[in-house]
Measured scan of single mutants.
Amino acid sequence: SFNTVDEWLEAIKMGQYKESFANAGFTSFDVVSQMMMEDILRVGVTLAGHQKKILNSIQVMRAQMN
C-alpha cells in the first residue's frame, strides 16, 4: 500500500500525472478512490492505455479499502 497519491502514481508508472492530480484536488486516497472516467479525463489523462491503467488501479484500491 502507498502513503501518498504521488507514490501510488509512481508505482503504477503514471508519475507524469502527479501535478495534474494535485492541481485538480485529487490528493488523498479517499478522493482518488471515488474517481470515475470523467475525473480521469478532467485531470488530463487522454491516452486510453493510461486511463485503463489508472482506472484498474483505482478499482483495486477500492477493493482494498472495504
Score class of each variant (00 low, 15 high):
37 M>E: 10
41 L>D: 05
59 Q>C: 09
37 M>D: 06
58 I>W: 01
35 M>K: 01
65 M>C: 08
19 E>A: 14
40 I>M: 07
55 L>K: 04
53 K>G: 05
63 A>K: 07
61 M>C: 04
65 M>A: 08
51 Q>Y: 05
41 L>C: 08
16 Q>A: 09
13 K>L: 13
8 W>S: 00
12 I>S: 04
51 Q>H: 04
6 D>G: 11
6 D>L: 04
55 L>W: 15
9 L>F: 03
7 E>C: 06
6 D>C: 06
62 R>S: 09
45 V>L: 02
48 A>R: 12
20 S>Q: 14
63 A>S: 13
59 Q>K: 13
7 E>N: 09
31 V>E: 10
62 R>V: 12
19 E>W: 09
10 E>N: 08
34 Q>C: 08
43 V>R: 01
43 V>I: 13
15 G>P: 08
20 S>M: 15
16 Q>D: 07
21 F>H: 01
27 T>V: 11
11 A>F: 14
56 N>M: 14
55 L>Q: 06
44 G>W: 03
60 V>R: 08
23 N>V: 13
40 I>A: 02
22 A>G: 06
52 K>Q: 15
46 T>S: 10
8 W>P: 01
61 M>R: 03
65 M>T: 07
23 N>L: 14
32 V>M: 03
45 V>S: 01
43 V>T: 06
8 W>G: 00
9 L>C: 02
25 G>A: 04
9 L>R: 00
64 Q>H: 12
23 N>K: 13
58 I>M: 02
7 E>T: 07
12 I>T: 04
32 V>Q: 00
33 S>D: 04
41 L>Q: 14
3 N>P: 09
5 V>I: 10
55 L>G: 03
2 F>E: 05
24 A>H: 14
16 Q>F: 06
46 T>A: 10
21 F>L: 03
60 V>M: 12
58 I>H: 00
54 I>M: 06
30 D>V: 09
40 I>Q: 00
29 F>Q: 03
31 V>K: 14
25 G>P: 01
9 L>D: 02
16 Q>N: 06
53 K>Q: 14
20 S>I: 08
52 K>W: 10
3 N>C: 09
29 F>I: 14
21 F>T: 01
17 Y>Q: 01
46 T>R: 10
64 Q>S: 11
49 G>W: 15
11 A>R: 08
